[in-house]
C-alpha cells in the first residue's frame, strides 16, 4: 500500500471528483471508475480500493436519498424487502473478499465492467413500463407524481423472486468489488419487475447505502480501510457528484452511452492485462 502523502491525498480527491461527476452525469456510481484507478493507478491492493470506494457509495446514497425525501419516488417497502437479500449478499461478499486472491477479484472486475459495457450499448433503446393509474399497486407497488408528464404513475411489482435473486448477486458483487451495484438491479427492476425507470433508479440509490455498509463494516473492522485515503475520496466524490448533478451537458445521451461503454471496455481490458501483479 502506498503511503498517503498530501500529494497522493490530492490525487485521490481529484480522482473522486472525476468519478463522482461522471457517475452523476451517467446515472452510475463512481466506484466503477474509482476502484481500478486506486488499484492499477495508485497501487492499492484491490480490497483496500474496494473499502475506500464503498465508503463513497454510502456517502452518495445517504445524500441522494436525503435530497429526494418526500417525493414518493423511492419505494421504501420494496427497497427494504430487497435489502434483506442485498445485505446478505454484501456481508457474504465481504467475507469472501478476505479469502480469495487479488487476481481473482481483478478478473471478476474485468468481467463485470465488460458486461456493463455490453448492457449499456444493448439498452440504448429503453423499454418503458406501461402504467395504468387505475391499477392497484398492492402491498409492494408504488405511486408517484411524475413532473415531466404531469401524471400520477402507479405500478405493481411483478416477478418478486427474480428481484430478490438479482439483489443478492448485486449485493455480493458490490462488496467484493467496491461498487454500488445499481447497474445490475435497475435494468432488471425496470425491464422485468414492472418498475418505472425513475422509481427503480431512486429505490436502488436508496438501497445501496445499506448494501455498501454490509461490506464496509467488514473491511473497516478488519483494518483494511485507510482513513486518510477514504476521507479524500469521499470528499472528492461528494464535490464531484454535486457538480455533475448541476451541469447540463449538451451531449446526446447516445454519445454519452457509447463513451461510457468505451471507457468501461478499456477498464475491463486493463484489469485483465495489468492485473495480477
Amino acid at each position: 500500500m502506498p503511503a498517503v502523502t498530501p500529494t497522493l491525498a490530492l490525487i485521490i480527491f481529484a480522482a473522486g471528483a472525476v468519478a463522482g461527476s461522471t457517475g452523476a452525469l451517467l446515472g452510475l456510481g463512481g466506484g466503477i471508475f474509482l476502484v481500478p484507478f486506486l488499484n492499477l493507478g495508485l497501487g492499492f491492493p484491490i480490497a483496500m480500493a474496494a473499502a475506500i470506494s464503498l465508503t463513497t457509495v454510502i456517502a452518495t446514497s445517504s445524500s441522494v436519498t436525503a435530497g429526494r425525501a418526500g417525493m414518493n419516488l423511492m419505494n421504501f417497502r420494496f427497497g427494504m424487502l430487497l435489502e434483506v437479500a442485498t445485505a446478505a449478499g454484501s456481508v457474504l461478499g465481504g467475507i469472501t473478499a478476505q479469502l480469495v486472491a487479488q487476481t481473482t477479484l481483478q478478473r471478476l472486475f474485468a468481467f463485470v465492467t465488460g458486461a456493463v459495457a455490453v448492457v449499456t450499448i444493448a439498452r440504448s433503446t429503453q423499454r418503458n413500463v406501461i402504467t395504468d393509474p387505475r391499477v392497484d399497486p398492492g402491498r409492494l407497488g408504488g405511486r408517484f407524481f411524475d413532473a415531466e408528464t404531469g401524471a400520477t404513475v402507479v405500478y405493481r411489482i411483478r416477478r418478486l423472486p427474480l428481484a430478490v435473486v438479482v439483489s443478492f448477486i448485486a449485493g455480493n458483487v458490490s462488496s467484493l468489488l467496491g461498487i454500488g451495484g445499481g447497474f445490475m438491479k435497475v435494468p432488471v427492476l425496470n425491464a422485468w419487475c414492472g418498475m418505472p425507470l425513475r422509481a427503480a433508479a431512486a429505490t436502488s440509490a436508496f438501497m445501496i447505502g445499506v448494501t455498501a455498509t454490509g461490506g464496509a463494516i467488514i473491511y473497516y473492522g478488519n483494518g483494511q480501510l485507510q482513513p486518510v485515503a477514504a476521507a479524500a475520496a469521499i470528499l472528492g466524490v461528494q464535490a464531484g457528484s454535486w457538480l455533475g448533478l448541476r451541469a447540463s451537458p449538451n451531449i446526446p445521451v447516445r454519445v454519452l452511452k457509447l463513451l461510457l461503454a468505451a471507457v468501461l471496455g478499456s477498464i475491463s481490458l486493463l484489469m485483465l492485462t495489468r492485473g495480477g501483479r
Binding site: 427494504m80 424487502l81 435489502e83 434483506v84 445485505a87 446478505a88 454484501s90 456481508v91 465481504g94 467475507i95 478476505q98 445499506v210 455498509t213 454490509g214 461490506g215 463494516i217 467488514i218 473491511y219 473497516y220 473492522g221 478488519n222 483494518g223
Partner: peptide, 20 residues
Amino acid sequence: LTSIVLLELVIGAVAALVFH
C-alpha cells in the same frame, strides 16, 4: 424484514472482528 437486515449488519461486524 427490517430486523433481519439489522441482524445481517451485526453479523458483518462480528465477522470483521473474527477476521481481525
